[in-house]
Every structure is written in C-alpha cells, then in structure tokens.
C-alpha cells in the first residue's frame, strides 16, 4: 500500500462576467500509508474541494493526485467516503447498506455476510442488522456509514465532517470509535472538520488551510491521536500541551476569519 501524493494541485472556478475563484492554489501534500490526517480551516479555504479532488469527484485545473502508483481520474473503490449525513440508502436495512460495496462487486454472499457481521460488532451495532436505517439515531447512522465504507476494504478513507451533525456527547464517543478503527484497520484516513478540538484529537497530523487562494498554512505532527488510543480522551484533551496547541490554532483560524470579514466580499 502506498500513500496519497498531492502534487501542485490548483483549482480555479471560472465564471462568465466575474472574477476567477481560486479555491486551491499550488497545494502539495504527501500523506503516508496508515496516517490519520485531519484538515482544518475557515469556510472557503478549499478543504472540501481538496477532498473532492482526492475522491475523484472533481478534476483539478492543474496538478494531480496519485495513489497506488496511478493518477486519480474519478471515484474508485480504493478511496472510500464517509459524508456528514444523508448518504445512507434509506431503502436498504443496516446490513444491506454495509454490504452495498461487496454486493456491487459481486462478492460471494457467505463471505459478505461474515464480513458484515464482523463490522457490526466492530462499530458497536451488533443486533441492529435488520433495522431500517431511518430508525437509527444520527450517531448510529454514522456508525453504519463507517462500516459500509470499511466493508469495501478501501486503501484510503476520506471523511467529510463525519461528526458535524452530531451532538457533543455522541461526537466524543464517535471520535473514540474513529481512532479505534484507525488502529485496528491501519487505513490511511483523511478527515475534514470544523472543530479545532476534533482536528487536534484525531489527527496524528493536522493540516491548517487558509483561504484566498485556498492553500496549506500549517502542517503539524501531533501526539494526541496516539495518546487517545490508550488514555482517557478527557485526560488527553485537558493536558497542557493539547490546550496550548488548541489556543494557538484557534487564534490562527480566528485571525483568518477576521481577514475574511475585513476583505468584505464574503463567500
């Protein structure tokens, strides 16, 4: 398995009769196999655009993304996605949602059934296989989304604010689950979030992006995700170095937001 190579990616949206929008400008990033990387930044910094380019939903104006020795040209089962919400198939029950990828690939039924059973246990949904997904709470739906992604055994998992719609308590639990999944599966994970606290806790590496043009501002290597695997999350999040980092990044994002406001043009 190979990491993700993002090579000088620029994304410009051209509209008739308006100034070009530089969603991304010369973004380069190497993500090693098995890394868990979080991306943070004010709205308009191009983080979602970057994720969509890696997923293959958008084609960059310049530059390229490479994975497993080939250039990304479209979506593929090697890159799984977890969305904020509403991406489950409500006409399928939990089991069939999770089995979607293997079923589309025509994998043997018995193999898929065993896999689904394992994943239900792994994400803490044992016994919920037969339930319609619309009867589950938001947190449980995201557990299904994670399991559905893992069932396909992708090399890379891309998460677009996966916990953004959840309440604070559920969110903390789910953060623990994401770390656990990262540890047990060894997948490369790229996670976008709005929450500084979450970005610090989940990323063994944290990328801060800045807007206008969208670019990478900072690239931190952090110990908190590793610590979160063994220690109580509350302890990690109240440790001095965590709090210091949090304040540092918060004030960075804050000043970016102020610049945007001062710029006046808005989104």
């Amino acid at each position: 398995m190979d990491g993700i190579h993002i090579d000088n990616v620029s994304m410009t949206f051209t509209l008739p009769g308006a100034a070009d929008i530089h969603a991304l400008k010369d973004v380069s990033l190497e993500i090693g196999a098995g890394e868990i990387v979080t991306v943070l930044g004010p709205s308009g910094c191009g983080k979602t655009t970057l994720l969509n380019i890696i997923a293959g939903f958008l084609s960059p104006t310049r530059g390229a993304v490479r994975l497993n020795g080939h250039e990304v040209r479209g979506p593929d089962a090697e890159r799984g996605m977890v969305f904020q919400q509403g991406a489950l198939f409500e006409w399928l029950n939990v089991e069939r949602n999770i089995a979607f990828g293997p079923n589309m690939a025509g994998r043997p039924r018995a193999e898929t059934r065993a896999k689904v059973e394992n994943l239900l246990n792994l994400v803490g949904l044992a016994g919920f296989g037969e339930k319609p997904v619309y009867q589950l709470s938001g947190g449980m739906q995201q557990r299904v989304a994670l399991a559905r992604c893992l069932a396909n055994d992708p090399d890379v998992i891309l998460m677009d604010e996966p916990l953004g719609a959840l309440d604070a308590l559920t969110r903390e639990k789910m953060q623990g689950l994401i770390l656990k999944l990262w540890q047990e599966t060894g997948k490369t994970i790229l996670l976008i979030t709005h929450s500084v606290e979450e970005a610090l806790f989940l990323g063994s590496r944290l990328i801060v992006m800045a807007p206008r043009p969208g670019r990478i501002e900072k690239d931190y290597r952090l110990p908190f995700a590793e610590r979160g695997l063994t220690q109580d999350p509350r302890e990690v999040k109240s440790s001095t170095d965590y709090v210091e980092r949090r304040e540092e990044i918060l004030s960075m994002i804050w000043s970016m937001e102020e610049e945007i406001m001062a710029g006046g043009t808005g989104e």
């Binding site: 593929d76 996605m81 991406a87 489950l88 198939f89 589309m104 559905r148 992604c149 891309l158």
Partner: peptide, 19 residues
C-alpha cells in the same frame, strides 16, 4: 452525496441507476 457514496463504493453507472 448518495450518488457519490455509491461511486466510491465501486458501483458502475448502471448499478447507480438500478440501486
């Protein structure tokens, strides 16, 4: 997001249409 999710799960165009 449902269509994107299905593509990322390896579904083909005809599978997206059907499923």
């Amino acid at each position: 997001s449902k269509v994107h999710a299905a593509y990322s799960l390896g579904a083909s165009r005809i599978q997206i249409l059907r499923h």
